[in-house]
């Protein structure tokens, strides 16, 4: 048994898995990772079950240290500089921290949340089947709150498995896709304004909700409706006309009209959008949204097959360029281009 020690930590860092289900009728929200694809990819890199608990990393610097034995970890999600004693460590790969070694994580450059998985998962007491932190409800394990300096996570001692990399499909670009409703009829022309405007995520956003900044979306009949149920991605519009997209720590019910809902497939991509960066929404049909849902489920299931040993085909582009491979261009089907390698001379 080893430990992973929290030596330094970004705000907004907490243990998250796929969340806890079945008690929303009692006001208990599922919580869980903001970017489920990245969380599952981190687990796939280590041979964990796809939805094992990981550390959801906030966007600033963090340091984690292995103690009492080696700890094998992987990193996915937001791109950021990372190193172990000065040796760079890439996103979407695994690495083993020797006892006493530290992983230094820099500030996120693209995206908001990173995912740090640990081989064998995190040891804790599941509550309603989940270790996910929900600080308001006092739930989560090993700590029912975001991580703090000095916390010690009990984890398995590293196996001798080869280090891995995962080949993920190119990130989806373009507008965040939504299905209109359930209360889109509370908005008239404002629906078109909502779909045709640039939006930015406010810096005051958190895991409960992302506040949007853009044009004022006006209600037809006022902003108070009788509370009804919410889902991850519900886009509610309060009195000031600035929408709030509900995130995994949302309230289970809300009393503002909901103009649309972000499709499940785009929740992670939306959650990774950095504050201040402009984006748009696009309405799609239910049939399209559910086809995307199926494709996303297939993508999740494909993750273990996208993991490869990282020492095979580790093409280092800079090294290739400096070796001037391109200067000896050959075609395997054209004898005339076969040339003897030139002596390394003037170019060096």
């Amino acid at each position: 048994m080893s430990k992973l020690i929290v030596t330094s930590v970004s705000p907004g860092t907490s243990v998250q898995d796929v969340g806890r289900f079945g008690a929303q009728r009692y006001g208990l929200v599922p919580s869980g990772a903001v970017d489920r694809l990245a969380m599952a990819a981190a687990n796939a890199l280590l041979g964990n079950t796809l939805f094992a608990a990981t550390i959801e990393l906030g966007p600033l610097n963090s340091v984690f240290t292995a103690k009492g034995g080696a700890v094998r970890i992987s990193l996915t999600g937001a791109t950021r500089p990372a190193d172990i004693a000065g040796t760079p460590f890439n996103v979407n790969t695994s690495v083993t921290l020797a006892d006493g070694e530290s992983l230094n994580l820099g500030v996120a450059r693209a995206g908001t949340f990173g995912y740090l998985a640990i081989e064998g998962g995190i040891r804790g007491e599941p509550m309603f089947g989940s270790l996910a932190v929900n600080a308001r409800a006092g739930l989560g394990s090993p700590y029912p709150r975001p991580l703090q300096v000095g916390d010690e996570l009990p984890v398995a001692t590293a196996s001798s498995a080869n280090e891995k990399r995962i080949d993920l499909p190119a990130p989806v670009e373009g507008p965040i896709r939504v299905v209109l409703g359930p209360q889109d009829d509370e908005f008239g022309d404002a629906k078109d304004l909502f779909l045709s405007s640039d939006w930015k995520i406010s810096a005051t956003s958190d895991r409960m909700g992302y506040r949007l900044e853009g044009p004022v979306i006006k209600h037809l009949h006022g902003h108070n409706i009788v509370s009804d149920g919410t889902v991850n991605g519900s886009i509610q519009v309060p009195g000031n006309g600035q929408p709030i997209v509900l995130m995994p720590d949302r309230g289970t019910s809300g009393g503002y009209p909901k103009i649309a809902t972000v499709i499940s497939t785009d929740l992670g991509r939306f959650g990774q959008t950095q504050p201040g960066r402009a984006f748009r929404f696009k309405a799609i049909s239910m049939a399209e949204a559910q086809a995307e849902y199926r494709a996303f489920a297939e993508l999740l299931q494909s993750l273990p097959g996208r993991v490869h040993d990282s020492n095979i085909l580790m093409l280092d582009i800079k090294a290739l360029l400096s070796a001037n491979v391109a200067g000896v261009a050959v075609s395997a089907t054209d004898d005339n281009t076969w040339q003897a390698p030139q002596p390394a001379d003037a170019q060096d």
Binding site: F21, G22, Q24, R25, V226, S227, D228, G229, T230, V231, T252, S253, M286, Q290, Y293, R294, A297
Partner: peptide
């Protein structure tokens, strides 16, 4: 159906679209 959330005036039904479509 994965879970339900009764409220004053509506029932929110969470479901798995891999098993059953909206219509």
């Amino acid at each position: 159906v994965t879970e339900t959330v009764p409220t004053y005036r509506s029932l929110l039904v969470h479901y798995d679209p891999l098993q059953l479509g909206f219509d």
